[in-house]
Amino acid sequence: MTSGPHTAEQPTLNKDVPWDSFDPGAYIGNNYLDMKAVDEEIVSRVRDHFSDRLRGSGRVLAGIDVGAGPNLYPSLAMLPWCERITLLEWSANNIEYLERQRPSYDAHWEPFWKVLREDRAYRGFDPKAYFRRAAEPVQGSLFDLCRKDPQWDVGTMFFVAESITESLEEFRRGVSCFMHVLRPGAPFAAAFMEHSEGYRVGDLEFPATYEIDTTEVLTAFQKFAYIDKKDVHRMADVGHLVRHGHTGMILVCGRRKE
Score class of each variant (00 low, 15 high):
Ala161Gly: 08
Ser51Trp: 01
Glu136Tyr: 09
Glu162Phe: 08
Glu169Tyr: 13
Arg120His: 00
Val38Leu: 05
Val38Arg: 04
Phe178Asp: 03
Phe221Leu: 14
Arg45Phe: 00
Ile95Met: 06
Thr247Cys: 12
Ala62Cys: 12
Ile85Gln: 08
Ala77Ser: 15
Glu216Thr: 13
Ile85Tyr: 09
Asp16His: 13
Asp144Pro: 01
Gly198Asp: 02
Asp39Arg: 01
Pro187Asp: 03
Tyr32Gln: 05
Tyr199Ile: 03
Ala190Val: 12
Asp20Pro: 07
Arg183Val: 02
Phe143Asn: 10
Glu205Gly: 08
Ile250Val: 12
Arg132Ser: 13
Pro111Asp: 07
Asp52Arg: 15
Val17Tyr: 07
Glu166Tyr: 06
Asp34Ser: 15
Val175Gln: 09
Gly69Trp: 03
Tyr97His: 14
Arg172Tyr: 03
Gly124Ser: 10
Asp237Ser: 15
His233Leu: 05
Pro11Val: 08
Trp113Ile: 06
Asp153Asn: 12
Arg133Ala: 12
Ser51Val: 12
Asp23Leu: 13
Gly4Asn: 04
Ala134Ser: 15
Glu162His: 12
Ile42Phe: 09
Ala225Ser: 14
Leu168Thr: 13
Leu98Lys: 13
Pro187Ala: 06
Asp231Gln: 14
Val46Glu: 02
Pro137Trp: 01
Phe158Cys: 05
Val181Asp: 05
Lys223Arg: 12
Pro207Ala: 07
Gly155Ser: 13
Asp39Gln: 11
Ile250Ala: 05
Gly29Met: 07
Thr2Tyr: 11
Ile250Cys: 11
Pro127Asn: 02
Glu110Pro: 02
Arg200Thr: 10
Pro103Gly: 11
Pro24Thr: 14
Gly69Gln: 05
Phe224Met: 10
Asp106Arg: 09
Asn14Arg: 15
Arg84Gly: 03
Pro5Cys: 01
Phe112Tyr: 14
Val38Cys: 04
Arg120Lys: 13
Val46Phe: 00
Asp34Pro: 02
Met249Arg: 10
Ala236Val: 03
Arg255Asn: 03
Asn31Pro: 01
Lys114Met: 07
Lys223Pro: 03
Gly198Lys: 12
Arg133His: 01
Gly198Gln: 09
Tyr32Phe: 15
Glu41Arg: 15
